[in-house]
């Protein structure tokens, strides 16, 4: 009695499910084909341009964004867009961190650079054993770990090439060669981090694991920040991590931003641009996160160390732009 008439309306349910799935896939493909993982460097004016060219009926809504964009144009020179696939915070963090390490070190004037590089490289090199303490199986994560270690090896190789060059860089020709080597390394890094289903995705996921492990390692610090879910029950940290941190494509919130910054001991400055208008100074007093004085955009700093001994450390500082649901890199 193999009843083929058995399903009554489950084919409908199936069709609906397929439809939403198909729509989601279509959106994902659209994003994939139209946005690179990380864009070329754009002038900061691109930000203002985006809002000032919106249709007239949306002008009202974008007024706050225009005001913020104008403010940011005076503070920054460039912008790098990151693909809006839910991984943008981690991807922006990864790209910006690598770029800072690469450029800082090849610049002789900043002496703290190589110390900072070794510190972060060591933290990463030691991280596999550390994350495995929090319930991750080495078998499933080591490929991702190795990818990040290899990326740091790549940066180190580029740096030591630049270093050798420095020794002969007393002449004008040497300096020019140094400059061209640096550009070359930067282009290679850009290409590497733009390959689909490759370095950027693998390292991005490993950053998620580091973030989750950081939260699990210090529940007293992070648990109070977890918002209640729809059932009004506090989520515990492992549940939060398995729902919101470990899956690819899940956006990063304030808690996770803080956890990743603290895990690697990196400072992250985030400019919050939420589109609210502020017309006079009084707004600042009542304003929320994104409102500062006369159109200023408020920023928040994560990963600040309160340890006195660390004061003199020349720490990496990443600067990111937040707009509702999305992060990009600022310069």
């Amino acid at each position: 009695m193999q009843s083929e008439t058995m399903p009554s309306d489950d084919d409908d349910a199936q069709t609906q499910d397929k439809l939403t799935q198909a729509q989601l896939t279509a959106i994902e493909n659209e994003i994939k084909s139209s946005q690179p993982l990380t864009s070329q460097l754009l002038p900061i004016s691109a930000l203002l341009h985006q809002y000032s060219t919106t249709a007239a009926n949306e002008q009202q809504q974008s007024a706050g964004f225009i005001q913020s964009a104008q403010f940011l144009s005076t503070k920054y020179t460039s912008l790098r867009r990151v693909r809006g696939d839910g991984n943008c915070y981690y991807r922006a963090f990864l790209y910006s961190l690598c770029e800072h390490l690469l450029l800082r070190n090849s610049n002789n004037n900043e002496t703290g650079g190589s110390k900072e590089f070794s510190r972060i490289k060591t933290t990463i090199a030691n991280s596999l054993k550390w994350v495995c303490q929090f319930g991750y199986e080495e078998m499933t994560i080591d490929m991702f770990y190795e990818e990040l270690v290899e990326l740091f090896d790549f940066i180190e190789t580029s740096l030591s090439a630049a270093d050798n060059n420095d020794k002969s860089a007393s002449t004008a020709a040497g300096a020019a060669e140094d400059e061209s080597n640096r550009n070359n390394a930067q282009q290679q890094l850009h290409a590497k981090l733009n390959e689909e289903n490759s370095t950027s995705d693998y390292c991005t996921w490993y950053l998620r694991v580091l973030t989750a492990a950081q939260m699990k390692s210090n529940p007293d610090r992070f648990l109070p920040f977890l918002l209640a879910d729809e059932t009004n029950m506090m989520m515990d940290i492992p549940t939060f991590c398995s729902r919101e941190v470990e899956p690819m494509g899940k956006e990063c919130g304030m808690v996770t931003v803080a956890a990743l910054a603290e895990c690697l001991g990196v400072k992250v400055v985030i400019e919050y641009m939420d589109g609210r208008l502020s017309n006079n100074d009084n707004d600042a007093a009542v304003g929320g996160i994104g409102i500062g004085r006369s159109g200023e955009v408020v920023n928040h700093v994560f990963g600040q160390i309160h340890d006195e001994n660390d004061e003199d450390r020349d720490r990496i500082c990443l600067t990111l732009l937040y707009r509702p649901g999305h992060y990009d890199i600022l310069y």
């Binding site: 399903p7 489950d10 499910d17 499933t140 694991v209 470990e246 899956p247 494509g249």
Partner: peptide, 22 residues
Amino acid sequence: VHFSKGDVCLDILKKEWSPAWG
């Protein structure tokens, strides 16, 4: 589970999948 096609509806096989699973 879809009765005739056998498809499975399970969150960890969709939005909540993580590479930590095998």
